[in-house]
């Protein structure tokens, strides 16, 4: 019996198939985003809140001028929001597994890694979206970074590099989490110290010694300092090297862990 569809599934999965399947799985994430305006609103609302909170509520008190604090804090908020967005990658994977969609994908004659590639590439679009929202809001309230368009784009690129490494932690946790609650708990306990205990909102020099030490080794500090350097001017090379080092380290540890957790489920 020959049927159309049996004729088209490949006898063996080639690297080209892997890319094809990964991209089709990515299109699913994008379709979800498009057909779910609530998610887009959620994705834009949080950055809006944080910009409003820090610039207009804390700004004046922290730096004596909300305009000065706006320029200081926007690169920090970009890093924090994109870092938060990586949690969503883990959540999506967890839901897919929970609902059995992963089982369906895994019972199909497609590249094993396609669902993972789809989840990560699809979420890259979400990361960009939250980044753009902050930049637009920033522009509207008068953020004109001296680094110009080039510096801003370079800064955005650095954040995305870091996000692409960081998201593998969430891919891993999303694959091994037993309940959505545990995943939520991981998110809180990991992301709050990381994104607040750095140069995100205040300079580490103003912190007590032990906290300043934590901030100085915190990867979020390196990323934030790099973005600040690129957008506002200042040293870039040092923090950028640290950012790359951290990104590589996170990826080297968590990419294989995630793949192993995924294969074991397979």
């Amino acid at each position: 019996m020959t049927t159309v569809s049996q004729a088209v599934t490949p006898e063996r999965i080639s690297p080209i198939n892997t890319i094809q399947h990964g991209l089709i799985a990515t299109s699913r994430s994008l379709l979800r985003l498009r057909s779910n305006p609530a998610e887009i609103i959620g994705l834009t609302f949080q950055p809006l809140m944080f910009v409003a909170l820090f610039v207009f509520v804390f700004g004046q008190a922290l730096m004596g001028s909300w305009q000065d604090y706006r320029d200081f804090v926007l690169p920090g908020i970009i890093v924090q929001m994109v870092a938060f967005a990586t949690i969503g990658t883990g959540m999506t994977l967890f839901t897919d597994i929970d609902k059995g969609i992963f089982d369906r994908f895994r019972s199909l004659p497609i590249a094993r890694s396609a669902p993972l590639i789809g989840a990560v590439l699809g979420d890259l679009v979400r990361y960009v979206l939250s980044l753009v929202v902050i930049l637009v809001v920033g522009f509207l309230i008068g953020f004109r970074p001296p680094g110009g368009v080039v510096g801003t784009l370079a800064g955005a690129g650095v954040v995305l590099i870091f996000a692409l490494a960081l998201c593998w932690i969430w891919v891993y946790l999303g694959l091994i989490a037993k309940t959505a609650m545990t995943l939520q708990m991981y998110a809180m306990t990991l992301m709050f110290p990381l994104t607040f205990g750095g140069s995100t909102f205040v300079s580490p020099e103003q912190m007590p010694d032990w906290m300043a030490w934590f901030a100085s080794v915190n990867p979020v500090t390196s990323v934030t300092d790099t973005v600040r350097g690129l957008m506002l001017g200042g040293p870039v090379a040092g923090p950028f090297a640290m950012t790359l080092l951290w990104s590589a380290a996170i990826a080297v540890v968590f990419f294989p862990l995630a793949v192993r957790a995924y294969v074991r489920r397979t």
Partner: peptide, 15 residues
Amino acid sequence: RIGLTGQYAAVDEEL
């Protein structure tokens, strides 16, 4: 060669 329909409907609810 196989098709699988599980106990829980494994379709994407958002699509």
